[in-house]
């Protein structure tokens, strides 16, 4: 499996486990896009996994907001024209 999807799956599991199913579902909607099949999505997948790890240890508003911010960034970048090659 491409490493972007791999990291994203770990993040989704952590975020879902922390009770944030809406955020997890939003990430699931992105996982099959080229952004995560390519290497372009790896840095953000890594960041959201780290944020998910923090969330699973402490479901504070700050940690939820951190995950939500990254989910929004992913939704924005995953569909951006030209993201992949250039």
């Amino acid at each position: 499996m491409p490493r972007g999807q791999d990291l994203l799956d770990e993040a989704i599991s952590l975020i879902s486990g922390a009770g944030q199913d809406d955020l997890a579902d939003r990430l699931t909607a992105q996982r099959d896009k080229f952004f995560f099949k390519s290497l372009a999505g790896v840095p953000l997948a890594n960041k959201v996994k780290k944020a998910g790890t923090a969330l699973s240890g402490d479901a504070s508003d700050g940690n939820i907001n951190a995950v939500e911010s990254l989910v929004a960034q992913i939704e924005d970048k995953a569909d951006a024209p030209g993201t992949v090659l250039t």
Binding site: D32, S38, A78, T83, V84, L85
Partner: peptide
């Protein structure tokens, strides 16, 4: 020409 890849790939119209 590669002009479409950045349009098609993100939408899932093309597979990598």
């Amino acid at each position: 020409c590669l002009g479409c890849l950045g349009v098609m790939n993100p939408r899932g119209i093309f597979q990598p």
